[in-house]
Computed example of a mutant assay.
Amino acid sequence: AADDALAHEITVLHIASRRTYGVPRIHAELRRLGHRVNHKRIARVMRERDIRGVTRRKHRSLTRADTKAKPAPDL
């Protein structure tokens, strides 16, 4: 029953984070809210209920072609 209540709290936090938070951030949020829970228990509950964090990164190209440059000669 305690794991079900914890799973509900984890699910609420996970959805509020746009499904990006993993175990470390969920643990930090629960600690901030006053819950005393071990990170291993959080990891186990998340694993059992298939809740996973995602890394979202901006994809940017660092190389930009010079449009005014002359093409290399065909050797």
Rank of each mutant, 00 (worst) to 15 (best):
residue 4 D to F: 03
residue 44 R to Q: 10
residue 9 E to G: 00
residue 57 R to F: 01
residue 73 P to F: 05
residue 30 L to K: 04
residue 7 A to W: 02
residue 28 A to S: 13
residue 18 R to H: 12
residue 21 Y to F: 15
residue 9 E to T: 14
residue 28 A to Y: 02
residue 24 P to F: 03
residue 9 E to Y: 09
residue 70 K to G: 00
residue 35 H to K: 09
residue 23 V to Y: 04
residue 10 I to L: 07
residue 61 S to N: 08
residue 35 H to T: 04
residue 38 N to R: 07
residue 11 T to S: 11
residue 40 K to D: 05
residue 48 E to Q: 13
residue 7 A to G: 07
residue 13 L to G: 12
residue 57 R to D: 00
residue 50 D to H: 15
residue 45 V to N: 04
residue 10 I to A: 01
residue 3 D to H: 09
residue 70 K to Q: 12
residue 31 R to P: 00
residue 45 V to K: 04
residue 43 A to C: 02
residue 34 G to Y: 06
residue 71 P to I: 08
residue 56 R to C: 11
residue 14 H to Y: 13
residue 28 A to G: 13
residue 40 K to C: 05
residue 30 L to E: 06
residue 57 R to N: 01
residue 12 V to A: 06
residue 1 A to M: 13
residue 50 D to L: 10
residue 47 R to S: 15
residue 56 R to Y: 11
residue 22 G to H: 05
residue 75 L to F: 08
residue 8 H to T: 14
residue 68 K to R: 15
residue 41 R to F: 00
residue 51 I to E: 03
residue 73 P to T: 06
residue 53 G to Q: 10
residue 7 A to C: 13
residue 44 R to W: 03
residue 62 L to H: 06
residue 32 R to Y: 06
residue 16 A to G: 09
residue 42 I to F: 02
residue 18 R to E: 14
residue 5 A to L: 15
residue 72 A to I: 07
residue 63 T to R: 10
residue 63 T to A: 09
residue 17 S to F: 08
residue 6 L to V: 02
residue 23 V to E: 02
residue 56 R to L: 15
residue 5 A to I: 10
residue 10 I to E: 00
residue 56 R to N: 13
residue 8 H to M: 12
residue 39 H to L: 01
residue 53 G to E: 08
residue 55 T to R: 15
residue 73 P to I: 05
residue 29 E to Q: 13
residue 25 R to N: 13
residue 55 T to C: 10
residue 30 L to W: 03
residue 64 R to F: 03
residue 29 E to K: 09
residue 53 G to N: 10
residue 8 H to F: 12
residue 75 L to E: 07
residue 51 I to F: 03
residue 30 L to I: 09
residue 10 I to S: 00
residue 71 P to A: 11
residue 65 A to N: 08
residue 2 A to T: 11
residue 24 P to L: 03
residue 17 S to C: 08
residue 67 T to N: 11
residue 44 R to E: 09
residue 34 G to P: 02
residue 18 R to I: 12
residue 7 A to L: 11
residue 48 E to M: 07
residue 52 R to F: 07
residue 4 D to H: 04
residue 37 V to H: 00
residue 2 A to P: 04
residue 41 R to H: 07
residue 24 P to H: 03
residue 58 K to M: 02
residue 38 N to W: 00
residue 46 M to K: 01
residue 16 A to P: 00
residue 10 I to T: 04
residue 12 V to M: 06
residue 23 V to M: 03
residue 47 R to C: 09
residue 13 L to T: 11
residue 27 H to S: 13
residue 55 T to L: 09
residue 41 R to G: 01
residue 39 H to I: 00
residue 2 A to F: 10
residue 73 P to H: 06
residue 4 D to R: 12
residue 8 H to K: 15
residue 25 R to V: 03
residue 14 H to E: 08
residue 29 E to R: 09
residue 4 D to E: 14
residue 74 D to I: 14
residue 72 A to C: 06
residue 13 L to V: 12
residue 52 R to T: 05
residue 19 R to A: 06
residue 66 D to Y: 02
residue 3 D to G: 08
residue 45 V to H: 04
